[in-house]
């Protein structure tokens, strides 16, 4: 038996989840084509965190990298989930918005530039509440402007997941790539439990959380597009194929009637379980196409 048969694939593969935000973004680009914009040595830090006794980070947890993916111009915007839960503050939000707007400007002047969002984030940074909320609004309007010209691709790999305001950014993006380990939801499990009680949602029940927010369920329901393994090469290949595919004919977030009808058709007289929902919604008419 050869060595490749003895060693299973998951030992040989290069994990994406184990990379930090910067390395994740770098791993998507064609070799030698990328450079980081407003990097750590520019020291654009949050002015608000030190006022509240919290050490800031030199890139505010947001990494912007411009380069080529599969030969096409692209910009990647990554949130570092280990810093303040990947939260969106004034600086990180402004970096993301500016990068998206520059991509739109390039695309409008005949150089289509796709955006890849690597979202490991709990949403708005509570210490910068109003500025974070304003940033989410700006980010969403910038995505809507860019996605007419070039695809906006969201990657949610885990393990933080994508929640709060940034789940809306994932919702309006052209394509969403998830792993089995990733989670996507507007309200996180602990927020639901805190607001509606443990009867509504038990945030310590990991099986329940992944049955509802997990990548497999989200892709199964058609609310995300591809389920990939935690493998850098497979994730990069998925991004390249979506950049090649270009702007979808109809974005998921434009299919208002389809989703309204689906919600109207739900039988709420009894508890809907995740498998039923996946069965009802998991057909080819949903999702980006």
């Amino acid at each position: 038996m050869s060595q490749t048969n003895i060693i299973p694939d998951f030992v040989m593969r290069r994990s994406f989840i184990e990379l930090n935000g910067r390395a994740r973004a770098q791993s998507l680009f064609d070799e030698g084509t990328w450079k980081e914009l407003v990097g750590p040595f520019d020291r654009i830090e949050s002015p608000w965190l030190p006022m509240q006794g919290i050490a800031p980070q030199s890139d505010d947890g947001c990494i912007v990298i411009k380069g080529k993916i599969g030969g096409s111009a692209a910009v990647a915007i990554a949130f570092e989930g280990a810093f303040q839960g990947g939260s969106v503050g004034e600086v990180s939000g402004a970096k993301m918005t500016a990068a998206l707007d520059l991509a739109t400007k390039d695309s409008e002047s005949g150089r289509p530039t796709a955006a890849v969002l690597l979202l490991e984030t709990g949403g708005v940074r509570l210490q910068e509440a109003n500025l974070g909320l304003a940033a989410v609004a700006e980010v969403i309007s910038s995505i809507l402007a860019l996605r007419q010209h070039a695809p906006v691709i969201t990657i949610i790999a885990g393990t933080v997941g994508c929640f709060g305001g940034m789940s809306l950014a994932a919702g309006v993006s052209s394509y969403t790539i998830m792993t089995r380990e990733a989670r996507l939801g507007l309200n996180g499990p602990e927020v639901i439990e805190q607001e509606s009680g443990i009867d509504e949602f038990d945030a310590s029940d990991r099986a329940l959380i992944w049955a509802i927010h997990g990548g497999e369920q989200r892709v199964g329901m058609g609310l995300a597009d591809t389920l990939v393994e935690d493998d850098s090469e497979k994730i990069a290949a998925a991004v390249r194929s979506y950049i090649r595919a270009g702007v979808p004919i109809e974005h998921r977030s434009r299919q208002v009637k389809l989703y309204r009808d689906r919600i109207a058709a739900l039988d709420t007289s009894q508890q809907i379980d995740p498998a039923t929902l996946r069965h009802q919604w998991g057909n080819s008419t949903g999702g980006a196409r």
Binding site: N20, G39, P40, F41, S58, A82
Partner: peptide, 18 residues
């Protein structure tokens, strides 16, 4: 040369060396 390593996460830190 310059170096940037680490992350400002719980029990960790970032270093900018230049």
């Amino acid at each position: 040369r310059k170096a940037h390593v680490g992350v400002v996460g719980s029990g960790d830190m970032e270093v900018l060396l230049e």
